[in-house]
């Protein structure tokens, strides 16, 4: 089943960098751009939902516009040897032209209409 290619442009494309110290919330910004002529619905998923606060975690990106998603890593005991295994996924679908409610769009979505992009996470300590 050919999966629809992701139409959203993600910045960064592959890796979210979080720079410590991790004694307080550390925020990384994920910019989502919709270069198409259609509105696009998106939702953000993660393998570590209790560790991050994501705002907005879903919504509609109008055609030709961008939005910034704040990914807030909650404070934790940082271990430089522990490589972060956390991952994020931006799932998206072209919004129907007569879209009324977003929940309905996700419920009726056919698997082949869904697009997704995955990002890994990297934790870095402040320089010096």
């Amino acid at each position: 089943m050919a999966r629809q290619e992701q139409v959203l442009v993600l910045e960064p494309q592959q890796e979210l960098k979080f720079r410590g110290p991790f004694t307080d919330v550390v925020t990384a910004t994920l910019k989502l751009t919709n270069p198409t002529d259609r509105n696009v619905c998106f939702k953000v998923k993660t393998t570590a939902p209790r560790r991050y606060c994501v705002r907005p975690n879903s919504g509609v990106i109008d055609s030709g516009t961008s939005i910034n998603v704040s990914v807030m890593l909650q404070p934790f005991e940082y271990d430089p040897n522990e490589k972060s295994k956390h991952k994020f996924m931006v799932q998206s679908i072209l919004a129907p032209r007569d879209m009324t409610d977003m929940e309905g769009v996700w419920k009726e979505a056919k698997p082949e209409e869904l697009m997704d992009s995955k990002l890994r996470c990297a934790f870095e300590m402040p320089i010096g």
């Binding site: 393998t47 209790r50 994501v54 975690n57 995955k118």
Partner: peptide, 15 residues
């Protein structure tokens, strides 16, 4: 085999 990553909806409110 590597377990396929399990994704959950991200949370926007207080954790």
């Amino acid at each position: 085999a590597l377990s396929e990553d399990e994704f959950h909806d991200a949370v926007s409110g207080e954790l």
